[in-house]
Nucleic acid binder design. Sequence first.
DNA 1: TTGGAAAGTCAACATGGCTGACATAAAATG
DNA 2: CATTTTATGTCAGCCATGTTGACTTTCCAA
Lengths: 169, 169
Amino acid sequence: MVASSTGTHGGESLLFLTDEQLRKGIEAMFFAYRAFTSDPDRILENYEYGRAHHRAIHFINRQPGLTVNTLLTMLGVTKQSLNRVLRTLVEDGLVEARIGRRDKRERNLFLTAKGAELERELSDAQRARMRAAYRAAGPAAVAGFRQVLEAMMDPDLRHHYQSMRDTAS
Amino acid sequence: MVASSTGTHGGESLLFLTDEQLRKGIEAMFFAYRAFTSDPDRILENYEYGRAHHRAIHFINRQPGLTVNTLLTMLGVTKQSLNRVLRTLVEDGLVEARIGRRDKRERNLFLTAKGAELERELSDAQRARMRAAYRAAGPAAVAGFRQVLEAMMDPDLRHHYQSMRDTAS
DNA sequence: TTGGAAAGTCAACATGGCTGACATAAAATG
DNA sequence: CATTTTATGTCAGCCATGTTGACTTTCCAA
């Protein structure tokens, strides 16, 4: 632990809220996110796909059968933008778009076996880095990591994050 | 199922390293980073600048007088890409590129008063979110947050991160 | 029956990555 | 001094992925 920033009994040091500490946090986000995306990006160079395809595949895998609209709000892009990506994934047989049973206007999205295979390759790489970082930092740090990230999210997106099935995979 | 990886053999619970936990971490990074960039992005819409300009301004502010090459490696883009951004910033009087004293081939980059002003506006917004997240999560969580992010970085970029002037702690 | 929602599509445009090629000035090296 | 290397800048073009706007089809629901 950062000793100096934890010395807060009644006196409230709040050293961890200095502009300098906040700036360190900002840069940590920048550099870590770069690393975080680099592994899948490297893999995707071998395919005709990009980061946008990865994101779509990730969320379809996470929540099989989700509708286009749901995916849209999770990704935070326009339907035109997503559609361009989704179309190639469907054409290439990585994603299946089944007409909704209740509501036939909706499309429920699923990964095919081929799609699941790519998803695994991408997420394996990403998990490997995450696992190494988690292991190096330890359980307590991981808890803090998650707490801060969750507090940083916009409330509506936080709901998407929290609503994840915690038992899956 | 993750059940197998929840096994607590040896007494040390590695529950935080299950695939499910790692996936939560991956999504936390995604959603948090989205939020993290949203505030400056919103501000930049009022100007003719984008995220790339923000990043350049950020690092020039952090390390006044740094060379183009240094900035290049920190940002991890090509010189053509950076130059496009840097040129507009210099033309618009936000950045000054002074010829190096020791080595006249080099350009030392500085923010002008106008550049510093925009930097402050952008980083104020970003810090505000970071501060709120830090405050909500507390000092111990912040320490863990930083530990995990640092462990996640590529070693060479980690050096850039660590070499920051760190006045506090 | 009609209005609105879900999805798909076309077109056009902006940003910001990339590669490749080339120019200039200055440092470094033989 | 001559040559090579380095730091920077620039032009041209390509690609991925974001945007807005307009329009269609299908279908649910009031």
